[in-house]
Design a protein around this nucleic acid. Structure first.
Lengths: 157, 157
DNA sequence: TCTATATATTTAACATGTTAACAATATGGC
DNA sequence: GCCATATTGTTAACATGTTAAATATATAGA
């Protein structure tokens, strides 16, 4: 692929020129994420769970009972999306909702036996894919990458 | 935040245990991307363009005429989404569509003067935000990160 | 030429992302 | 206790992501 000159469209003032989209951090993050998820998505589809449903029940299994706000933070799912995902997970019997006794605004989420069952079904496949990815990219480099990503995510906090 | 034991829910077989979601590459990529876009999104909203609309017209200004498939690859937007985005950009007068004379299946995209105008309006703000990000994170480290992300994205190619 | 196959784009259907507004409940100050 | 304000979760409206199917055009081969 050859670098094509931006002058193609008569934009010549460097100060106004947008950055090279091939070195754009947002696009690079998107590409990398899509590439990684491309490994997992077909497997999740075989188990009939979406990526977000999987995130939610995994976190619930890992952390125990959580309210919706905590889940939203951990899974990086915005509240409106989470409302819908919780509804579908509840309909499928993977989680249960209950009101917090101490704070009537909060909804407590809990995983069900069926939820644990699907986790036990999906986890081995997930682990296999992740292990392969680790071996190809290098575990240490993944750790370095994770650290940089975390720093980027917490820059303004 | 204290590490909570996964035994909370009675999952005890390590082989079946899902990976720690706080060191999950897909979630980390998502968090980082959302953090970065969080800097840009309000600015783009002020200019009344969505993130994806901005990607498309930027790439069009940078590369000149492209067909939809090439745009889809460069902007990392799936074809069905791109169809809708092209429609809205056309309605707003930022781009024009035309059929490829040599291949009747292909749709050629071209930026309009109005499209160039909005680019010249948004670019300075975008550059300001990106420069600030660069200074806080470090230009060299962003380069390292971009290289790792690119490698991750092209692992299976 | 005819036909089977491949490719480019669109449409459909549903899930999620995103912002704003709303409803219900808590909380602090009076 | 009452009120203004903040917080939690939901709903609404629209844009985008995702997969599958449909449509139109190209292309290779018999």
């Amino acid at each position: 692929m050859t670098r094509q000159s931006p002058e193609t469209n008569g934009i010549t003032q460097d100060a106004l020129l947008p950055r090279d989209t091939r070195r754009s951090l947002p696009i690079a993050l998107l590409r990398a994420r899509e590439a990684v998820m491309g490994h997992f998505r077909p497997m999740l589809a075989l188990h009939d769970v979406t990526e977000q449903q999987w995130r939610v029940i995994r976190i619930l299994a890992e952390a125990g009972t959580l309210d919706a706000s905590e889940m939203s933070e951990r899974a990086f799912i915005l509240a409106p999306s989470l409302t819908r995902i919780i509804r579908s997970l509840e309909e499928r019997g993977f989680i249960t909702k209950s009101k917090d006794a101490g704070d009537g605004r909060r909804i407590l989420l809990q995983i069900t036996p069926a939820g644990l069952k699907i986790i036990n079904e999906v986890s081995p496949d997930s682990r296999t894919i992740y292990t392969a990815l680790e071996q190809r990219f290098g575990r240490e480099r993944i750790d370095i990458l994770l650290d940089m990503l975390d720093e980027l995510a917490t820059l303004n906090k």
